[in-house]
Structure formats: structure tokens, C-alpha cells
Design a protein around this nucleic acid. Structure first.
Lengths: 225, 225
DNA sequence: AACATAAGTTAGCAACGCTAACATCGCGTG
DNA sequence: CACGCGATGTTAGCGTTGCTAACTTATGTT
């Protein structure tokens, strides 16, 4: 009864017993882990992670409030599993953006950044859990937590080096990649939290990302840090 | 019984009855609103906003769990009041950074940005509440919510125009200010959420902010957005 | 002194996270 | 094929929480 991280995205393998639509409410749900993650994901988007309750997810899945604890250690474990799914999807989206632009350069980096922002905009609740609940979700013991997040970061750093002309893997290239990630992450959080409203001017996030890619890639590497 | 936003920062006015240290536990606390906000702030930093409970704050303040509702409408109202305090402090910190650098230019903008990041680093829990719980805290009715946040933003935009040579109040200057805010906010969130750890290289946030101020201010305004 | 009001109290509800103990199903093995 | 055992459900219940209702006590005005 651990983390169900062996249920990566959404592809349903043989599925021991597909939950037949109407066949006399069966005692065993058959695919509760997935069903719960789906319900929780919906709730996280609808109400936010803190208002999400396991009980509500149980009602949605049509099971008792004790059922989840046969599949997940606790509430946090459910959110942790949801994070795994989220990072997988984010990495896929970034990879797709990379694959969509043939020639290296600012444009490709910008597209990856836009994909990052688009993921956040499409999954604001999940995005907040993925990046904002680390301290609460991970126990100090598990070391290999940020693996999926690292995989996301890996997608960019090669392209950044290529687009900037810096030595791939060098520290300046790394710093530049960090700066671009920082900017794109800032766009994402300010966007989904509705904080751009205080500027009283419309904010075009795509244009913002493009401008940052242009400005930071051409401006050369940071001197230190 | 509303918001106690008339208790701005922490200066204790005459205080109807200063809570005398040891004078036979008095029935009336005397300054419960402030005491609660202090306890809640401590809890928000220690446990995070979602694990913060009004009950714990009551235990800390030495009152019953029903007492807070004589001063605040509900739990969210307490967090709202805490946000008011936070934005006030943030604006003061940014203003102080502004005042600390005589001549306009990149350096001044960078200092304000560093003050922003420093505030987040010193008050991570509060910072998350301030910028991340808007949807949950504000009711669609109250219009004048983001006033304190707007005041913070106002501190920078003048300096950005000065440092970039753009027309103050013009849209390009506005866009540039938004980009700098975006970057600095990205640094803050990635820092306090521990997400920079996935880069596996040490990240010097001050250097990051300085590099962004340099790169974005010299790179000229974004073309659109 | 009388009294209205502000600011505390206790008691209690519903929802939640989680556990313990019990029930049922499905699958592998004698 | 019976058996049984583990996986996966159930009900019952504990402690905590947010919040309300009804009551009590202090404060300050007239």
C-alpha cells in the first residue's frame, strides 16, 4: 500500500476488471486507484488542493471513505502520486514543443517555455501542488523524489546551450537555463494566481515568454550565480 | 466584526488593556486580534497555511476556540488580514530598498528586486498566502482587494522607466516592469518552494536578479504583450 | 447604579483524516 | 473442485477542525 506510481499517466493496462458501467454495483471497484486519482485531480482543479477532501473523492468514485487507504498511505500520498502524473505530462508537453520546432534557436526555447505556461494554465491546481507542496508532500527520507522534475529541466538545457552558443553543460549555460526557467515559472504562477490583474493592463504571456527568450539569450550569460 | 485591517502592522496603539504578563488570568484578553494574527503568522510559517488551524492559534493565545469569531468573520478572514500586513511590510521593504540607492539605474531596480526576494525568503509561508490564495480568500464582491499589491507594484514602475530610458507610464515601460516583476517573483517562488534543488547546482538568487535587471533593462522593451 | 455592548465562555454540529475490525471477492493451489 | 488466503472493499468510531448558538462577564456611557 504505497504510492501507485506504477500507474503513470492514464493508459489503462488490462485493468484487472474494467468498471462495467451498469452491472449490479459490484463489491470490488476494480480500478479504484485510477478512479481516485481522477476524482482528486478534478477536485484539485475545482476547489484547490487544500479544499480537496478524500471524502469527496470517495463519493465521486462511489466507495466508502476508508477505501482509499488500501491503495494510498494517506492523503499526501495521493497528492504525491498526482504529482508524478503531472510531471510526466509536463515533460511530455515540453518534449512535444521541442519536437515541433526543427531548427535550434530562440524560437524553440520560447516554444518550450510557452508549453510550460500552457500546462500551468490548463492545470492550475495540479501545477500548484507540483511546485508548491514539496515541503509538505515529501518526507526527508525519499531521495529520488524530484526525478520527474529533473527530467523536465533536462528538456530545456540542451536547447538553451544550442540557442545561446554556450558550451553545453557548462555553468554559464546552466545559469542561463535557470534564468529562463525562473522567468517562465514566474509567468505561470502570476498567471494562474490572477496576480497580473494588479497591473491593470492586459498581459500577453506568450509575448512575455518570447521577449524573455530573446532578451536573455541575446544578452549573454549572467556573470555569476 | 470584520477584518481588523485597522491593525496595520504591529505598532500597539493605546491598546485598551495591554495583556499584563501575570495578573490573574483575566477574562478579557485585551488584544486578541493582534495576538491571533501573531500566532497565525507563526503557524503559517511553521506548518504552512493549509496546516495552520485556528484552534492551534487559540491554544497559543490562551483563549477558547470560539473567541476568534468575535474579531474575524471566519478563518479566511484571518488570512486576509494577515495578507494586508504582509503587503504592507513588502511595500515598506521595497520602498526602503528604493531609498537606499540614490541614483536611478539598473542597480536600484535590482535592489528592489532583491528586497522582494528577501521578503519571500524571510516569510515564505506568508508570501505564499499573499500571492497564492487569492481565489480562495477574496469574495467576488470586494473590489478594492489588490490595493496593497498594487501599491507594491507602483514602487518599481517609476524606477524601471528611469533605468530603461522609456517614457514613464508608457506601455513599453509597463511591459518591462511586468517582466522584471515576473522574473523576481519566479525567483521567489522557486526559492521558497525548494525547486531550485532539481538543478543540482547552487543558485545565487541575488546574482540572478542582478543579471535579469541588466539583461532585461539593456535588452530594450518587449515588442508586444 | 443601570444597562447596552463588546468580548469572552461552554456545548455541540458536521466534515474531515485515519484506524480497527469485519466482509467479500478473486485467484492460485492441494 | 474445495479451499483458503490475500487483496480490496465495508461499517464504526476516534480525534481534530471550522463554525454557531446560547450564555456569562467585563467595560464604559448616561
Amino acid at each position: 500500500m504505497a504510492d501507485a506510481s506504477d500507474l503513470p499517466t492514464d493508459s489503462s493496462p488490462p485493468a484487472p476488471q474494467a468498471p462495467a458501467p451498469r452491472e449490479r454495483a459490484r463489491y470490488h471497484h476494480g480500478d479504484l486507484a485510477h478512479a481516485l486519482l481522477g476524482a482528486v485531480r478534478e477536485l484539485v482543479e475545482r476547489d484547490g488542493a487544500d479544499r480537496m477532501s478524500v471524502s469527496k473523492a470517495c463519493r465521486m468514485a462511489g466507495v466508502s471513505t476508508a477505501a482509499p487507504y488500501k491503495h494510498f498511505a494517506d492523503r499526501n500520498d495521493i497528492l504525491r502520486s498526482l504529482c508524478d502524473i503531472g510531471f510526466d505530462e509536463l515533460r511530455a508537453a515540453m518534449q512535444a514543443a521541442h519536437d515541433g520546432v526543427a531548427d535550434p534557436g530562440e524560437a524553440r526555447v520560447a516554444e518550450i517555455g510557452k508549453a510550460y505556461v500552457a500546462f500551468a494554465a490548463a492545470n492550475p491546481g495540479l501545477f500548484r501542488v507540483m511546485f508548491g507542496m514539496k515541503r509538505e508532500l515529501i518526507s526527508p527520507s525519499d531521495e529520488d523524489y524530484g526525478l520527474e522534475a529533473k527530467a523536465c529541466f533536462q528538456v530545456v538545457i540542451g536547447d538553451v546551450a544550442e540557442a545561446s552558443g554556450l558550451e553545453p553543460g557548462s555553468e554559464p549555460a546552466m545559469r542561463l537555463a535557470i534564468m529562463l526557467w525562473t522567468f517562465v515559472h514566474g509567468v505561470s504562477t502570476l498567471l494562474i494566481d490572477g496576480d497580473y490583474e494588479v497591473t491593470e493592463v492586459p498581459v500577453n504571456t506568450d509575448a512575455l515568454v518570447e521577449a524573455a527568450a530573446r532578451g536573455l539569450l541575446q544578452g549573454g550569460p549572467p556573470r555569476a550565480g
